[in-house]
Design a binder for these strands. Sequence first.
RNA 1: GCGCCCAUAGCUCAAUCGGAUAGAGCGACAGCCUUCUAAGCUGUAGGUUUCAGGUUCGAUUCCUGAUGGGCGUACCA
Length: 552
Amino acid sequence: MILDIKQYVSEKIKNALRSLGIHEPAVILERPKDPLHGDISCNAAMMYAKKLGRNPKEFAQSILEQLALPDEFITKASIAGPGFINLFIADKYYTEKLTEINELKGNFGRLNDNSGKTADIEWVSANPTGELHTGHGRQTALGKAIANLLEWTGYKVTREYYYNNAGKQMENLAKSVYARYRQLFEPDYPFPEDGYAGDYVKEIAAILAKEHDDKLIDADDKIFREAGENWCFKSIRHTLDSFGIHHDIFFNESTLYETGKITETLEEFKKRGLSYEKDGAIWLKTSELLKNKKDAADKVIVKATGEPTYRLPDMAYHIDKLKRGYDLIIDIFGADHGDTYKEVLAGIEGLGYDSSKIKVIIHQMVTFVQDGKPVKMSKRADNVYTLDDLIEDIGADVTQFFFVMRSANTHLEFDIALAREQSDKNPVFYLQYAHARICSILRNAAEIFPDYSSAGSINYSLLDTPEAISLIKVLVLFPETVAAAAATLEPHKIITYLNEAAENYHRFYHNNRVIDAEAKELSFARLKLCEAARIVLKNGFDIIGISAPERM
RNA sequence: GCGCCCAUAGCUCAAUCGGAUAGAGCGACAGCCUUCUAAGCUGUAGGUUUCAGGUUCGAUUCCUGAUGGGCGUACCA
């Protein structure tokens, strides 16, 4: 018996509504918060009673009569509150679901809602002008989890990094490297006022000095730019690597120039009368293109110097991504980019492209706190606390978890002291501990019951304690949790769910002795439940991007 | 000024498409280890969901306004 209980119930209620005169009934099913309200509740009576001029509770009764309960899967039904229909599902349904979990293992929770579709997610995309710092952490972690989440719903996912090694910022890096290099020979040589102050620039300069001594003092900017770029990019990739992130594509902005896509886009704007010249620059009529026209000013897309501003290549880039034919395109930015992406989307829409496939995730800023006080971890200071430092300090799992545990559109307070804590206070360990605990039991079981792994049929009906039933009910919800999290691109929903799963497991463990040499049949059933719990936790960890330790 | 985001327990945050008695963790207090991992479990205390209206059978959720905070408002990205 493998069936989707929600679909079963939904169809049944729809039929009941049809026979009561509702032509195209929409049925919304929910899981009540209170277990006393059953396993599934339906608000159809309240939704339709008014249209029919009937009392909701009385109408609920009519629906109930049409349902002909109890049946094989629904053991009990009741009407409660203002007119909810509450249904109680047979334990048998849940216990047999365990078989499904244990068979699917690492695939339990994988959906095929989007199989055959492709998605592209572009994130991090920091310019190679420095190391990744803690401010990059949130989007780095979010992108990692969201990419996983999309894969779990069936998408074939391309992970992409937009790489910009041209422009003013890079020149600035070149000048900064040059100044540091020259200072090695002339300590009084001035450092550019807005140069990159980080120590890493000195490190780059030192490498150049070691290789070339002072022979580069009159050398072209290019050599300093390249040295800087290479060093920074290597550093960024190293950080991503230690975070377990691997991009499939590093899309170099310069290719947009080389292939003529920038000029092409610009010409198209001109042709459509969406741009004009003023003060030597080319302006885009963003005030007309933006949907929210209030106070929207036109923006420069080509500076008086002839160089495009970031907007133009960004638009050409998104057009390129659209043309690649993905079903879904995701960008992740911090709140400081909140306005600019709208200009980019408005621009490409102005050129006739459909931007509805592009979903932009804007996450709010992160404050690092220690002992209740904000801690500065900015890039401006000479001694920078990098993302690498953070990972080294608290570990990749904790870093990933803390950045992903809150909804992206709310400000994140990152408690660095709590994150450092290798104890029960740390919410990551609560989850991982549950996993390690299960692994330990399974190891013990292998010794005590050598025949467990080859056991034939399992008597799941022995899983009849409230804790066991409650745990199973939570485990069964994993696939729909994945669907819900993916639908809104919110991986924190997985964490909220995993907390509930872990909590239920710990309670089960505490009240139900798993291994009992005197009660083999019961032990086997409970071990199967443990395995299922382990699978769900592990799969959830895979999505949010943390490890599943077997020992702690 | 204008735009976007946010406001929920002492603190950090959840809350299913608008659902029933708003939930966790931390902190506080009180219990549970001669049994499979106590990084665990159990209990107590803690709320006018910032405020004022509106829509609805029903609002933390949607709408309007106010207040407070974050981020933008570049010929930087």
